[in-house]
């Protein structure tokens, strides 16, 4: 058991990600031609610069940082949605992404059809989803809406359904992006309980949030990203103290100006 607990689940080495931010998207011939004549229009934007860390099994890692610091991009790189510009991400196990929950649904299809579509996208088989179907529906609390097209769902309902499918999928690594702030109080409580269950099962969790209280309460480790650079990697309490100090400094700087 001990050796398993020390298994490295995610290894990030010299990871950098650069986006080309074009002021006009170069999607047509005219803008192609114009962009050649006018090269300064698009610029490089380094979202992540030389990020290094490794995560072991059973760790619950909180990721903090201001908007635009690269948190979500980091998760998408680990989830293999984006390709790194340089460096590499090594993942050892099956990833369950909880990214932009509810966005991936097909609005024209019913809740039931979306459960099957989404479930297979996460790697389940239809037979397995059939087995779990009742559980998923019950968890979401949307029993009466399974034949309704998802376009008629509220955003809260979509998120609940998305969470319910993902949480029923067996994986090794769970990527959570701001998910504890979704749904009503009751659903939040339920989802938190499920996440705590994952921790007990020694699953590895990466958790992006702006809620600092939940980081100090649950996480075993905290990564602080600032403008794409890892500013701190270690105990949550230390990370939060430094992060809050930095935020205060920024405010003081602004106030003094």
């Amino acid at each position: 058991m001990n050796s398993q607990e020390n298994k490295t689940m995610i290894e990030v080495e010299n990871l950098s990600k650069t986006f080309w931010i074009a002021e006009d998207k170069k999607e047509t011939l005219k803008s192609y031609v114009l962009s050649i004549l006018n090269q300064n229009k698009s610029k490089m934007f380094n979202v992540l610069t030389d990020v290094n860390f490794s995560i072991k099994q059973g760790e619950f890692v909180g990721i903090i940082g201001r908007n635009g610091s690269g948190k979500s991009t980091l998760l998408k790189l680990i989830a293999d949605i984006y390709a790194p510009t340089s460096g590499r991400v090594k993942v050892n196990g099956r990833i369950i992404p909880f990214l932009e929950l509810g966005v991936g649904f097909n609005p024209e299809l019913s809740g039931e059809e979306n459960i099957y579509l989404n479930g297979t996208l996460l790697g389940m088989t239809n037979a397995h989803i059939k087995q779990k179907y009742d559980e998923i529906v019950e968890y979401s609390g949307l029993e009466g809406f399974m034949k309704t097209p998802v376009k008629n769902y509220s955003s809260g309902m979509k998120v609940r359904l998305g969470f319910s499918i993902a949480i029923q999928t067996d994986g090794d690594i769970y990527l959570l992006d701001e998910i504890m702030s979704v749904g009503d109080a009751e659903f939040r409580k339920k989802s938190l309980a499920s996440i705590l269950e994952l921790i007990e099962k020694k699953k590895t969790i990466l958790y992006v949030t702006h809620s600092l209280a939940s980081i100090s309460k649950y996480c075993t480790r905290c990564l602080w990203l600032n403008r794409g650079i890892v500013k701190f990697d270690g105990s949550p309490d230390k990370a939060l103290t430094r992060y809050e100090d930095a935020l205060k400094n920024i405010e003081e700087l602004k106030a003094s100006k």
Binding site: I81, G104, L121
Partner: peptide
């Protein structure tokens, strides 16, 4: 694009 941006398959 909506699913490609959400999950890797």
């Amino acid at each position: 694009s909506n699913i490609i941006l959400k999950v890797s398959f």
